[in-house]
Amino acid sequence: MQEGNVIEVEDLTKRFGDFTAVDKISFAVKQGEIFGFLGANGAGKTTAMRMLIGLSKPSSGEAKVAGFDVYRENEQIKNNIGYMSQKFSLYEDLTVKENIRFYAGIYGKSDQFIKEKTSIILKQLHMEEQANNLVVSLPLGWKQKLAFSVAVFHEPRIVFLDEPTGGVDPVTRREFWQMIYKAADKGITVFVTTHYMDEAEYCHRVSIMVDGRIEALDNPAALKKRFNARNMEEVFLKLARGAKRAE
């Protein structure tokens, strides 16, 4: 891998029968970068992400994540990344503390480490009083902030966030992005998908997938310039409207 890169992808492809979900995508992500991974529904984002986190074997092409090969070293990849999604991130019938303990335990962290870091995190989230409450009782925004903290608890090199802010109120959504910025500042690479186009502006670089291919990849300012657009929503619409694939 090239110095400073934590993800390197070359001609990565995934076919299901005669359907090519991901069609020869190539890109690299640098350490500490906030990388926005956009695309219309059905463009192939989820399939691509599943290959990168070691849950799905590519049909062809190469990819290395945190220095490990997606074909042969997917277990090592899982140890070096964090993952959170909008749909499932925490066990609702466990308490806040139990969720932290459970995830940290899976990653093999010591009791001492878990104990110390749990109190730091609860303090940062202002959730000390809720530590022993069931997650089901938390408002969505709190859940998502907690889920992010849990996803980076074991100090992974990369965290994958799949629509982390869907349905979250505008104030909490912004607090969530401040957590992302701080994580990136500490050197954690953030790979994020979103349907909120204002959030695309918060990313260092953005890729836009159309029909299984990456049609554009650059920083938001350069993309806006290239597509003569006022904002990222216009860039996205210009590209995604060209999609041929019926979802």
């Binding site: 529904n41 629509e163 869907g166 349905g167 929503e233 996205f236």
Partner: peptide, 8 residues
């Protein structure tokens, strides 16, 4: 429109 992309 929740979870639906900007075009749709």
């Amino acid at each position: 429109t929740t979870g639906v992309d900007a075009v749709s």
